[in-house]
């Protein structure tokens, strides 16, 4: 007797069911069913790697937040980062908990990143501080860009990555498919 199917296998079964259904569904609804199939495809890819991705990304961002805090004069950042790191070390007991930790860390990153941008562009900032801010900004942008690129297979709107350009063909084919 084979074991009961896991979550991913269940998703795959539902996806296959919907795929088989597409030819039998009328125009506009068929587009929505095709979209549901694509969503399930990308969700399967995402769920396979999401735990590791969120763990790694959270760790990356906590590290950058620790570096940015002193540069932007936010002393409380060290303690906040330590709390986030403790939550990460404790190990998230569920995907929901890890997701919440990842969101909290991204939220802190947004706040610190915008403060760092101001330091870098503020004429009143010393040249040394500006250089330090620019160096850190370069690394944070690069890191966040890498995080985003690692997720490209989690979506099917844009099939290939082209720097600073979007594949309108894909978007519009998608819109067409979706009708």
């Amino acid at each position: 007797m084979s074991p009961a199917p896991g979550g991913l296998a269940t998703l795959a079964t539902v996806r296959q069911f919907l795929t088989d259904l597409v030819p039998e569904v009328s125009g506009e609804r068929a587009g929505e069913v095709r979209a549901a199939v694509k969503l399930l495809e990308t969700a399967e890819i995402e769920l396979n790697v999401r735990h590791n991705s969120l763990t790694t990304e959270t760790d990356d961002l906590i590290g950058y937040c620790r570096e940015i805090g002193p540069l932007v004069g936010r002393r409380e950042t060290a303690a906040t980062c330590e709390q986030l790191a403790q939550r990460l070390r404790a190990g998230a007991t569920s995907m929901t908990a890890l997701d919440e930790l990842w969101r909290d860390t991204r939220s802190l990153t947004t706040s610190l990143l915008t403060a760092l941008q101001r330091i870098e562009s503020d004429p009143a900032t010393s040249q040394a501080e500006q250089r330090a801010a620019a160096d850190l900004l370069e690394r944070v942008y690069g890191c966040l860009g890498a995080h985003a690129r690692s997720r490209l297979s989690w979506q099917s709107v844009f099939p290939v990555y082209a720097p600073a350009g979007v594949d309108s063909h894909a978007v519009n084919d998608h819109r067409k498919d979706l009708r």
Binding site: A35, L144, G145, A148, V157, F158, P163, V166
Partner: peptide, 26 residues
Amino acid sequence: PPTQHLMGRGLHHIEAQLADLLLTAL
């Protein structure tokens, strides 16, 4: 609708490109 949910996931691509342009700005 699934169609709009699907489009929403395209945000990852936008983020990747924003990183490139912010680096250009820097």
